[in-house]
């Protein structure tokens, strides 16, 4: 595949790009990265954690799962999950860095109350079977793990590198690459 762009996203900074159908967003990181997506040209259609959980019938997104919109349409598909086996990504928590994300989303003019809950990459949340108790449980990995998200429609993708001592291994640079077929 051809590299369309490649950016280093330092801890406590964000990234925003238009991604066309068929392109892949490759995210290589080690600390928590919150991701949201909007349908290009219509930000009222946005990534939705509940639709995503129920379409996949799983609370931990991984390879093969699709990211769904509030309007019940597929937006992206996770085609690689280098974190699998080390930990789970999270679909339960709100944003760790909401102000940072709102800043990144400035081109779309998203208000705080309309900020969709994120796909929390690398935010391993231990959930107790009997009580449902949630305990953030950072999983350190030696080398950056790679997550590939393939766009199923034209989308706008925003992410923030949002390390937090409670939820994440120490902050590390993330590298975000957009690949075209």
């Amino acid at each position: 595949m051809k590299i369309v762009r490649e950016d280093t996203v330092r801890p406590n900074t964000g990234w925003f790009a238009e991604v066309s159908k068929g392109q892949i967003v490759r995210i290589a990181g080690r600390s928590v990265i919150d991701v949201v997506a909007f349908k290009r040209g219509d930000p009222a259609e946005f990534f939705d954690v509940a639709r995503t959980r129920i379409y996949n019938l799983n609370i931990y997104p991984t390879k093969g799962h699709r990211l769904f919109s509030k309007q019940n349409n597929p937006m992206m598909r996770m085609v690689a999950d280098g974190f699998a086996g080390a930990g789970h990504h999270d679909l339960q928590s709100p944003h760790g860095c909401p102000q940072l994300m709102l800043g990144v989303l400035k081109p779309l003019g998203i208000a705080a109350e309309n900020l969709p809950d994120p796909l929390g990459l690398f935010r391993h949340m231990a959930i107790e079977q009997k009580t449902g108790r949630m305990t953030p449980t950072p999983r350190a990995i030696a080398a950056p793990a790679t997550i590939d998200l393939e766009a199923e429609i034209d989308v706008v993708v925003a992410l923030v590198n949002c390390p937090d001592a409670k939820t994440s291994p120490p902050g590390a640079d993330a590298v975000v690459t957009v690949l075209a077929p």
Partner: peptide, 18 residues
């Protein structure tokens, strides 16, 4: 009316999924 119930905030405030 822009202030709405939120599943994620509710789960994290109570630190449980149920």
């Amino acid at each position: 009316l822009k202030e709405r119930f939120d599943q994620a905030r509710t789960k994290v405030y109570n630190m449980k999924i149920w």
